[in-house]
Design a protein around this nucleic acid. Structure first.
Length: 272
DNA sequence: CCGACGTCCTGCTAGC
DNA sequence: TGCTAGCAGGACGTCG
């Protein structure tokens, strides 16, 4: 469900509610998540103080004085706070009581998400280093160009690769490709330098606008305080199968690429 | 090594 | 109305 803008929104929402708080009690259900929850973490986390909240790619990092909690929302994950006694939604897997009487909850219907504790910063950094590449707002032209030059996969597949660029998922890959008027099927290594630069700028622009709109709510995404996003109203390619292209009027088509639905305009997402 | 593809899981809906 | 195939903001293991 969540890509960079949604994850960033959750982090921004939760930051003022979590930073400086102490964890009073931590409880996890027994249904396994993507990465198994270890029971000993419960005691390890009790009394821990939240130093900071940050995002890396699609990962949420909760820095504590006893280590770092690393959260991934997978497809359907929700991380929210609120009154401890609010009704418990189905598929809620982790409950964290805070010292101000509120409760942080991790809910994930499909359980593709995870919440794990790293006891040292080194372990966390090593874990992230092997699966998260440059942030889209920081990546240099040269780095992005060489990452794309190194693969023959279609552009769409390359954008979904978190080591190529962190935080882009199925929606924003389609939106950025539309914005830069590039075919999703183009082998990444065939993209010309000016095309790569156009794509890099489009990714940053699309993600920035989406963050401003608090992400996209298509199905069940909610921010840290339960608010929905609005960027779904700005989609120009994703989910617009059969509708006219905003640029040229041609019907937007959907194909299967890299195992994912891919939406694009067959007429204007072509090379000059 | 690289890339394509299946799998994990549950719920919703389009289409018969 | 009722059923079911197919699909869903992701990541990773396996196979060729």
């Amino acid at each position: 469900m969540p890509e960079l803008p949604e994850v960033e929104t959750v982090v921004r929402d939760l930051r003022p509610l979590l930073e400086g708080r102490r964890l009073v009690r931590v409880r996890a259900g027994n249904k396994p998540l993507r990465r198994a929850w270890t029971p000993k973490w419960q005691s390890k986390l009790t009394g821990a103080k939240v130093a900071a909240l940050r995002r890396r790619g699609k990962w949420i990092i909760i820095d504590l004085d006893v280590g770092n909690l690393l959260v991934h929302l997978g497809m359907t994950g929700q991380l929210t706070t609120g009154a401890k006694d609010r009704p418990v939604a189905s598929h809620t897997h982790v409950f964290v009581d805070l010292d101000d009487g509120t409760q942080l909850r991790f809910r994930d219907v499909r359980r593709f998400g995870s919440m794990t504790l790293f006891e040292t910063a080194n372990e966390l950094d090593a874990f992230l280093a092997e699966r998260v590449g440059p942030e889209p707002f920081d990546v240099t032209s040269a780095a992005f160009r060489s990452a794309l030059a190194a693969t023959s996969r279609p552009l769409k597949a390359a954008l979904l690769d978190q080591m190529v660029i962190a935080g882009v998922g199925n929606i924003y890959a389609d939106e950025a490709l539309f914005e830069s008027a590039l075919p999703p099927t183009l082998p990444a290594c065939d993209a010309l330098p000016n095309e790569v630069e156009r794509l890099r700028n489009a990714i940053a622009r699309v993600l920035m606008c989406a963050v401003e709109g608090r992400g996209s709510t298509i199905r069940n995404y909610v921010g840290g305080s339960g608010l929905r996003g609005s960027y779904q109203d700005e989609f120009r390619a994703y989910g617009r199968t059969g509708k006219p292209c905003y640029r040229c009027g041609t019907t937007i088509v959907r194909i299967r690429l890299a195992g994912r639905s891919t939406h694009y305009c067959p007429s204007c997402q072509k090379r000059a």
